[in-house]
Nucleic acid binder design. Structure first.
Length: 606
RNA sequence: GGGGUUGUAGCUCAGUUGGUUAGAGCGCCGGCCUGUCACGCCGGAAGUCGCGAGUUCGAGUCUCGUCAGCCCCGCCA
């Protein structure tokens, strides 16, 4: 190999060395005589200098000068030269290689670059182009320091995790990408079979069933960096394809899974940052999390906790609250203290929050401000002085504090309230940076009942081991989530290993015995051949990396992500395929774009 | 599917109450410059104001529609 060093490597200790550096021309500065190039690769930047007054004797100066004229920005080039100390007073303390430079004696262009569509180099005032431009030229975007860092940390994370899990006897096993479509959960991506026309594979939403069958297959400690596919609308933390660190273990209890994850994350943390994490992570029950923070993945780095007010206001003449409580709803409040808000919340802000509350599914938002010691607002006339006093005491409200009251059905009200809490915290800048708070959300229910249809839904998924009688009123599930800073990082559970219980859960979810046999027969069958007690967890790799790097979106930690509409602007996928490929698969498309509009319009006119 | 927001030079943006020839910085091209580091200085080229209608004597600006990006809701067992 010609290249002797990377662009981030050379130091004063290398003075006098003959080196060959290869990389990209980031900036160049031509002073008419002496000229500089910042040569960059993913390791760093080294200054190359062309110095006619100080050239080695055998050097052909005009030839080098000619070659360097072709060194357009972002071209890949090769440079030979000698490492030397920079002229006194010109060292660059911001750059680890800033004390040295390479005096060029030979140069070659390896791959000339067209004029880049945007700035690749780090700028004093970062002017990032729009994301769609970055996506179209992702290969250039990846050269940026920030992207290099994200990709590097991601790789380190995966390496450290593998190192840890292998040391604990876990085996990495690949599971199929072409698999059976399952009826539960998200929409599947479908892949047509050529051999069996009219039938389809689905891309896995997760390797759930396969990893459980690995347990039946005696692979008692499994892990995999698994690609998962879900055909649902994207968000900044959701992509149609994403990566999970998927794990499963046999002969274990819930705590064993949590111990492994705590060990794993501590190991990774130490490897990445050289810092110890405090373990075990705290636990909070589902109900408590909902009632204090209005979320099953609460951000507990700041306060603004909910206070239950149902008892305090149970005799309130305020009709809206009465109606809600009579139908089993709750009333809860959040105190935005004058201390936190700095008195910055005015009537306009309150109206904004009322609007926001409606947007996130709350029926409305009641507010009061403590003025002259009394909760005051346009609706306090419907409250008795005793009840107002009760609210004030319960919420520990003081002069100038603003109280927001939410009311409605337990779940949707706390969830909406949680969204409001988050919004207020962000507006008031209450969310601390550089604090990483892991915790376990525990004591989850097994089922949720749809308030409209009355239909049972699995709280996590149908393979979770129920705790107790599944027909009981509040049947729990042996499932739990790991959360970090208001995000769900992953969820785990003990699984059902008894085929009869598995069938009973499916029935509870409304499946007939025929459906169960058709959709999950192979799986129930597998459970009936000595399935060990087992359980596992999956960690969202993209989200984890996003959070620890303080990024806004998982797109920034994925090398080639798709946009909001699931389009890859780099390769323009999805795309049409030639007609003969469809014929081979015996597929016809009914896409509106494929219709002949002239014909359609004519038929409409008739 | 719904709501919000953005769209002006290759990139990031400004553009007043509707009014002459649409501007700036960066980049690009040409010239000058022997110690810069986002080098500097001088000069230059570069625009379907997302697209389509409408109002108007006149539209980047107002109205309607439409397309695209992003954020949120729905959706994501």
């Amino acid at each position: 190999m010609k290249r002797t060093n990377t662009c981030g490597e050379l130091r004063k200790s290398d003075l006098g060395k003959e080196v060959c550096l290869q990389g990209w021309v980031r900036f160049s500065r031509d002073h008419g005589g002496v000229a500089f190039i910042d040569l960059a690769d993913r390791y760093g930047i080294t200054q190359i200098v062309f110095d006619p007054a100080d050239l080695p004797s055998e050097t052909d100066a005009s030839r080098i000068s000619d070659v360097m004229k072709k060194f357009t920005r972002e071209s890949a080039v090769s440079v030979n030269g000698v490492v030397r100390e920079r002229v006194e007073g010109t060292a660059d303390a911001r750059n680890p290689t800033g004390e040295i430079e390479v005096l060029i004696s030979d140069a070659e262009i390896l791959g000339r670059s067209k004029i880049p569509p945007f700035e690749v180099g780090d700028q004093k005032e970062g002017v990032l182009p729009n994301e769609d431009v970055r996506m179209k030229y992702r290969y250039l975007d990846l050269r940026r320091t920030e992207m290099i860092e994200a990709i590097t940390i991601r790789s380190r994370f995966m390496h450290l995790a593998r190192q840890y899990l292998e040391s604990k006897d876990f085996l990495e096993v690949e599971t199929p990408i072409l698999a059976r479509s399952t009826p539960e959960g998200a929409r599947d991506f479908i892949v047509p079979s050529r051999v069996h026309s009219g039938t389809f594979y689905a891309l896995p939403q997760s390797p759930q069933l396969f990893k459980q069958m690995l347990m039946v297959g005696s692979i008692d400690r499994y892990y995999q960096f698994a690609r998962c596919f879900r055909d649902e609308d994207s968000r900044k933390d959701r992509q149609p394809e994403f990566t999970q660190l998927d794990m499963e273990m046999s002969f274990i209890e819930e705590k064993d899974i949590q111990d492994v994850i705590e060990g794993l994350i501590s190991f990774v943390w130490d490897g990445l940052y050289g810092k110890k994490l405090e373990v075990p992570f705290p636990r909070i029950g589902y109900t408590e999390a909902m009632e204090r923070f209005g979320s099953d993945k609460p951000d507990m780095r700041y306060g603004l906790e909910f206070v239950k007010l149902t008892d305090v206001v149970k005799d309130v003449p305020y009709e809206i609250f009465q109606r809600i409580m009579k139908s089993g709803g709750i009333v809860a409040g959040i105190n935005v203290s004058a201390e936190l808000s700095g008195g910055k919340i005015g009537r306009n802000d309150i109206d904004r929050y009322i609007n926001y509350a409606k947007k996130v599914g709350l029926g409305g938002l009641t507010w009061m401000k403590i003025q002259d010691g009394v909760p005051t607002s346009n609706i306090t006339k419907y409250f008795t002085p005793e009840i107002l006093e009760g609210i004030k005491n319960e919420m520990k409200a003081e002069e100038g504090d603003i109280l927001f009251l939410v009311a409605g059905p337990w779940k949707s009200t706390y969830e909406g309230g949680g969204a409001l809490r988050k919004k207020i915290a962000e507006d008031l800048d209450l969310v601390p940076k550089d604090v990483f708070q892991f915790f376990w959300l525990v004591d989850c229910p097994m089922f949720e009942v749809d308030p409209v249809s009355g239909k049972y839904d699995a709280f996590h998924h149908p393979f979770v081991k129920p705790l107790g009688d599944i027909d009981g009123k509040a049947c729990g599930g042996a499932c739990f989530d790991i959360c970090l800073n208001g995000n769900e990082l992953g969820s785990g559970s003990l699984r059902i290993n008894d085929p009869e219980i598995q069938k009973a859960v499916f029935r509870k979810l409304g499946k007939s015995d025929e459906d169960i046999e058709e959709e999950f027969g192979f799986f129930v069958e597998a459970l009936s051949y000595g399935a060990p007690p087992h359980g596992g967890i999956a960690i969202g790799v993209d989200r984890f990396i996003t959070i620890i790097l303080g990024k806004e979106t998982i797109r920034d930690v994925i090398a080639f992500p798709k946009n909001k509409k699931a389009v890859s602007l780099l390769d323009n996928s999805p795309a049409k395929v030639p007609e003969d490929k469809l014929e081979e698969l015996q597929i016809m498309t009914l896409s509106i774009d494929d219709l002949d509009f002239e014909t359609v319009e004519e038929s409409e006119e008739e």
